[in-house]
Design a protein around this nucleic acid. Structure first.
Lengths: 203, 203
DNA sequence: CTGCAATCTGACCATACGGTCAGAAAAGGA
DNA sequence: TCCTTTTCTGACCGTATGGTCAGATTGCAG
């Protein structure tokens, strides 16, 4: 019941989906240890034993959430196209990443929680992450060396994009508290980041 | 025993300090719910009942840590000097903030944990935070309008500084995993951020 | 040294939590 | 309909955890 392949019956599909949705809600808001099976079960509209009928353990639910997460999270970076226009490609990446923070703040916070704790349940995925980043860093470096982009450390450029976009999801309370009502943080951030990266990368 | 004024006896000073140090270690690594009094007591070299002789509850320890944190954390921003040279002032702020991430990564993660959970125990401090940020945003806006700084949204500039500097502490595992061995993330970040903000703010 | 206050401890308690299990209820195919 | 499989539940268990307490131990002023 805790395997990765798609659930067979209609009921299984519905309930597994409800559980993962509920778990995302609770895990992202409370962290792994802070979340309880009772909370998740209540949020999913199921009883706790029934929840454990679909997933072997709390760990298993969390693991399944994380498993899907990295792929989704890194998809925009994967699409960075070496054949595209350097500045446009990076700006497009920034915008897509910011859009993900807006549309999936819970996923962002789930990821942040995991990283804050030292990525104990994501450690094995880190080498793959490094490989992808190194590859794309190579693309960016080549653009710089070809004079199509201002010279810049590609790894830290990528870190900067992550930090700046995820910040709006992970620290949303703070951002909203500081801006006060009547602001759309993500809209403003979009404009600001366009400007920032344009100035940073202009040859 | 859980009041704010300085402990009287030598033993109290020593043990309260040890407890807060241990609690910072554990809370920042595990989050509030993830941390246990036993862990903190062990880390501090005290028994759990003895720990509770000095602090009324787990909450009280956490509260005392947070109480001191915001002040320390915002000190560099407070020092942003309206009478200084705009670019130099902001670059100095960035460097000091990055230095804090390097020297106090646990404090950074404690703060991040709190924000991720929606700042339940810091909510009352947010208005004061907004006031400070608004004040400094005013300074930056004035610099921009006087043509001494490239035009830029001051609030989001401050968010950017927070995001970029704290990222290296909060996501340290990820940063190190991606860079691989033989890198000093903070040294490299220092150079990168100097460049970034110089290009962003140049008139 | 004496006696009081400060410090510390082992034993204990109540609750919360992850997880189990026997069996009831519902689905679904024949 | 009948029968098998899937889905679901109430009751329960063991452990972890925050916290209490009576009393032992230690520090220290006189």
């Amino acid at each position: 019941m805790d395997d990765g392949n798609p659930a067979r019956t209609r009921i299984q599909r519905r309930n597994r989906k409800a559980i993962l949705e509920a778990a995302l809600e609770v895990f992202s808001a409370q962290g792994f240890r802070g979340a309880t099976l009772d909370q998740i079960a209540a949020e999913a509209g199921l009883s706790k034993p029934n929840l454990l009928y679909y997933f072997a353990s709390k760990e298993a639910i969390h693991a399944e959430l994380l498993a899907g997460l990295l792929d989704i999270w890194l998809a925009p970076l994967r699409e960075l196209d070496p054949a595209g226009a350097p500045q446009a490609e990076i700006l497009r990446y920034v915008r897509r990443k910011l859009e993900m923070s807006r549309a999936m703040p819970r996923e962002s916070r789930l990821f942040a929680n995991e990283m804050l704790q030292g990525a104990p349940r994501l450690a094995e995925a880190l080498p793959g992450l490094k490989a992808l980043v190194d590859e794309k860093a190579g693309v960016i470096r080549a653009w710089s060396e070809a004079g199509r982009l201002a010279p810049v450390d590609p790894h830290h450029l990528i870190f900067a994009i992550w930090a700046l976009t995820q910040h709006y999801a992970d620290f949303e309370v703070q951002v909203r508290a500081v801006l006060g009502p009547g602001h759309d943080p993500y809209d403003e951030a979009g404009a600001f980041l366009d400007l920032l990266f344009a100035r940073l990368l202009r040859v």
